[in-house]
Amino acid sequence: MIKAIVNISLKKGVLDSQGKAVHHALDSLHFEGVDDVRVGKQIVLQLDTKDKEKAKKDVTQMCEDLLANTVIEDYEIKLV
């Protein structure tokens, strides 16, 4: 079994309103030294395979087809 962790976030240059709101809230709580906040989502997949290469290929396809909208989002895949 391979666990795939997919992190999806808005692309650089696409305004992240939620990140901005959270940043603002951190500021008002007096947390200092936060330069930037991005809010994304994480999708965790349990894969029925031991083949890491196949897993990476399959999950990449899942991201391209469904999990991310590549017009506005980037994705990052970690296999554990």
Binding site: L10, V14, L15, S17, Q18, A21, N69, V71, I72
Partner: peptide, 17 residues
Amino acid sequence: LTEAGLLPGALKRNEHL
């Protein structure tokens, strides 16, 4: 339609959430 690629662009969360 944008998700299907039949129209260009995408719809994001409203700016003020």
